[in-house]
Design a protein around this nucleic acid. Structure first.
Lengths: 168, 168
DNA sequence: TCTAACCTTTACGTCAACGGTAAGGTTTGG
DNA sequence: CCAAACCTTACCGTTGACGTAAAGGTTAGA
């Protein structure tokens, strides 16, 4: 549109992908991608003349991010939306940042942006901590069993000791 | 049944709880608890004369474990069933263990049990690793912002440097 | 013994997160 | 310009994980 590319030697051809290509690229289904749009997780960068959805590389990253949160972290789409709103705010912030040259405002914008990222990290960290706790629990059971194993291997008789359940 | 308790001075009165008490205790709803039974996640330790579900402390632990997996880890009930089957195997193993006095068999049983716990831990660890990766990603963004902040606070002009996206 | 508070099963309702399909418009190579 | 391949919206179906209500049986205390 407003990009005077010399019709040659363009630094990076910003190819836009259609939904099926995006699906193949991200491992999602077209249906899911449309659904994510429906519930406000992302909008395609553009539409073709005939209203085809067209996605850019930023959209791809976003979709991969979504998939990671969904599959790897097991977040609900509602939780994902929260995290993505932080992402979006980050983008808006960048624009505001570039728009101003006021030192104080720039500082404030950055501080805000950092706070948002910190919130994302905290959300993830919370989940990790809970998982870690569960692992500790399991490890306690493991150690208990390992203790018995040592006894057995030493040829000793078992120690029933009221099968001390590890603390919850 | 085969427990000749002197009708007095019983070491620990194994009180059985009804479903609502269990719900209050575990933070689940009676409906969920029944549903978990329906899909085979646990069965009450006993039933009253009039078919009331009666739960013992082991059931409570199990339900708390389920809730942890559901809320904290975000596992589906299908995944939870997998993890619980390991738990169940652990219980059966304990019985087999107590039943035998053959040293070799005891050893094997313990080794098996430990392997199961290890599998549980590995499942959790995988999930954690993925979350950790996402945190690293976020932290990279944060550092990037923090760099800009330092620049601004030093009163320097911005460094646009093609906003280097961190690796995915 | 009676009743309030609990429980049972059964069944239908709901919400999230999609899957499938129909009816029709768009793109693109030949 | 035409057909195959792709896309659109719209709508209904499904599965998981419960909520809710109905119709009736059980328990515990006064």
């Amino acid at each position: 549109m407003s990009r005077p590319i010399p019709a040659d030697a363009a630094p990076s051809p910003p190819r836009l992908l259609r939904i099926q290509e995006v699906a193949a690229e991200t491992g999602l289904t077209p249906r899911s991608i449309r659904y994510y749009e429906e519930v406000g997780l992302l909008a395609p960068a553009a539409r073709s003349e005939g209203a085809y959805r067209l996605y850019d590389t930023e959209d791809l990253e976003r979709l991969r991010f979504i998939r990671g949160l969904r599959d790897d972290a097991g977040f609900s789409l509602a939780e994902i939306r929260q995290l993505l709103e932080d992402e979006q705010a980050r983008a808006r912030i960048r624009v505001r940042f570039r728009a101003t040259h006021d030192q104080a405002e720039r500082r404030e914008i950055l501080v805000e942006a950092i706070a948002r990222v910190d919130r994302q990290v905290e959300t993830l960290r919370t989940k990790i901590d809970r998982l870690e706790a569960m692992i500790l629990d399991a490890r306690a059971r493991r150690d208990h069993l390992a203790g018995h194993l040592e006894e057995v291997e030493a040829g000793r008789e078992p120690t029933p000791h009221e099968h001390g359940r590890p603390r919850r």
